[in-house]
Design a protein around this nucleic acid. Structure first.
Lengths: 133, 133, 133, 133
DNA sequence: GTGGTCTAGACCACG
DNA sequence: GTGGTCTAGACCACG
């Protein structure tokens, strides 16, 4: 079951917090292809935010091919497919990596410390699947 | 010599593009403690942006202790110093790491690919010092 | 309720007068964690200054961790947290203490008089809490 | 003998740094009534600053009654006299005390820590006179 | 010439 | 409606 939490005080827009959490839930296989997402109204009421904010988040996820709407039924996790070219994926990730590395250097993090931090974050997102043989 | 380029069309604000590039230039020791930066007006005219945009970038860098102004003379790379508490540094870096990792997952990067990308970026920032063979 | 007054004729910049008054209001607990500040536009119109001047004041307070913005909702008093290293805090406070002491000497204040004045000011900022007798 | 040092990198204007140091030197009796100050040109060349900067500093000190010029001979420490009314002195010192106290609170200094810091600074300025009877 | 402050006003992002 | 970014341009302080 998908559980979304937001920090209204963060400087990350609420719609983006939602987008990121759905992405992570899908990537870490907490929700699987075909699973349903909360309805726009339900989630809006749950998070106490404007329904338009949910619409915006869902619509970005739809554009990126992560979820898809079924008219009248709601939103569902889409079958995984590659949306962007290799070049585009690279471009998008570099746009985040570069400022991160620059800021890390300014803040005085060593290369090792930064890599460890990333590792940590990656672990929190690793599917809980238990790949038993 | 510091060479700054901006993409006015990007969704990254111009002042932030400038901040990031100066950070990188300092971190990679392309410019060193005491070196001067382009004057506010010169850089503004060079990049064809409003001087206030440069003021904003320089002022953020000043608050973070990366550069400092000398009234009537211009801005200079500051002696490196730690400004923020460990906790604050952690807070600031996490704010960048979390969305990066989420986006990487969505884009389909494996943990290894992401870590390699970071490694690469870190290398491009490593001071070229050690001029002896 | 926060009540800000400015002297446009003073040689202290308007944005700094605002910053100082918000700091004092927070320190003396006239406004508490989570309380909202006047909106940028409302305060600008109230003080008859340009909204950018308010933006500048609020943005300095945000960088120092005193307040934080919630996109679309406004600014709020932040939960207290330490942002700067001990060394940096010392650096910042000394930058104010030294000129103060120098000026005090010139004006002919004795050490005792100066300390008393500071004491007095500290008292005006002491939270009025303890509502029980 | 008066020994003035400046930090061009400080955000305190150079002329003000000079003013403060002369004030302190007089207050701490390192230089006494009738002692001469370095000539404008000598000091400018010594500090590697524009002579106008020295002129500005000396002229502020003259206005405040700390030094006085003797046409063709140079500047000398003036006989101590009160220039400002009690009310004016109070106004001037409060203008420095208030922001200091506000900033100290923001930075998390306790009342005791702040008072100690001031004490320390006062001690560095105390006349070395040894008032033996 | 350098940066610092402020105004006036536009347009955008978010909710 | 909220804040965020940017332009255009003025005037001041400092050196």
């Amino acid at each position: 079951m998908l559980h979304i939490k937001i920090s209204p005080g963060s400087d990350v827009p609420i719609f983006r917090q939602i987008v990121d959490q759905v992405r992570v839930a899908v990537a870490s296989e907490k929700i699987a292809t075909g699973d349903s997402l909360p309805s726009v109204r339900a989630l809006a009421s749950d998070l106490v935010v404007n329904p338009n904010t949910i619409v915006r988040a869902y619509s970005e996820l739809t554009k990126d091919g992560v979820i898809e709407s079924q008219r009248g039924r709601g939103f569902f996790v889409a079958k995984r497919r590659d949306v962007f070219t290799k070049r585009e994926r690279h471009r998008r990730i570099l746009a985040l990596v570069q400022p991160l590395v620059a800021e890390a250097k300014t803040l005085g993090f060593s290369d090792e410390e930064l890599l460890e931090l990333i590792q940590e974050q990656l672990l929190t997102l690793t599917p809980v699947s238990e790949p038993n043989a």
